[in-house]
Design a protein around this nucleic acid. Sequence first.
DNA 1: TTAAATCCTACCACTTAGGTGGGAATAAGT
DNA 2: ACTTATTCCCACCTAAGTGGTAGGATTTAA
Lengths: 150, 150
Amino acid sequence: MMVSTKGRYALTVMVDLAKHTGEDYISLADIAERENLSMKYLESIISILNKGGMLNSARGKNGGYKLAKSPEEYTINEILILTEGSLAPVNCIMQDGVQCDKAATCSTLPLWAGLDKVIDTYLGGITLQDIIDGNRKKMLGDYCGQCAQL
Amino acid sequence: MMVSTKGRYALTVMVDLAKHTGEDYISLADIAERENLSMKYLESIISILNKGGMLNSARGKNGGYKLAKSPEEYTINEILILTEGSLAPVNCIMQDGVQCDKAATCSTLPLWAGLDKVIDTYLGGITLQDIIDGNRKKMLGDYCGQCAQL
DNA sequence: TTAAATCCTACCACTTAGGTGGGAATAAGT
DNA sequence: ACTTATTCCCACCTAAGTGGTAGGATTTAA
């Protein structure tokens, strides 16, 4: 498993906020109830999103959260990297490039690097808005005919 | 992290066996020494490969392992799925399709399904032979111009 | 003043990762 | 028959990560 509940719930929260965008702040209790997730657990997750600058928050009564930007300005990649720390599929690929001491002679490294690239490119090409729109073409493919089998 | 040392070492073992193919069986001690990995740990990993039918083995003196098929007949996908159990990037995507009870209404599911597909397609398109050949074009892309940014 | 909300710091049970250790079974060479 | 090299098998272990829960302090609108 590469994306834990932390990343998945973070995305769920972001999508929920994006769907219920308005002038008001949205409380965590509302999100937790709508999405049927533990509010206490979401608390720790939304805190990461907030500290990462993805949200605006307001404390006190009628407080809550809202997106800091519009939905099409968030890629899934950045949301998951913020919450999960890294999306690298293996330990030998770090966020800041290759890290292994055997890298120079490792014949499997190009495979891992290629996998990392494929994942990064896919998730970097999809935004919160695409999810709200249910843009299946973009998410499930079929839009690059000659690469359908890629 | 989606692929643990188990899957990585399994691939390393397969590549090593593919590189040193001959009429003789290759002992685990040789592999462990060449790849500088714990033989005891490799033992448990190669056992999975062997039981999964990917290898032929011989016990006793001069025994060891060899590939059951030729290198171009093994996709990376099947090696990793055998050893890791699954390559699904999230828990809601199982090897036998979708498993979550909220699937019907989940707006993020198409994203996870798409990610799974992208990974599966990439790893299913590369064989042991590609790794031995150092086929960077296939592993690192650039061979599908219009999809370079995909 | 009160109620509703975010914020903060612990804690905790369970599983997985990444191994190690000991020895039995098998087979080739002498 | 013996020795040696090998696979095969099972139990165990430590550290880290996962998926939360608990309790309260702080802030703010009404």
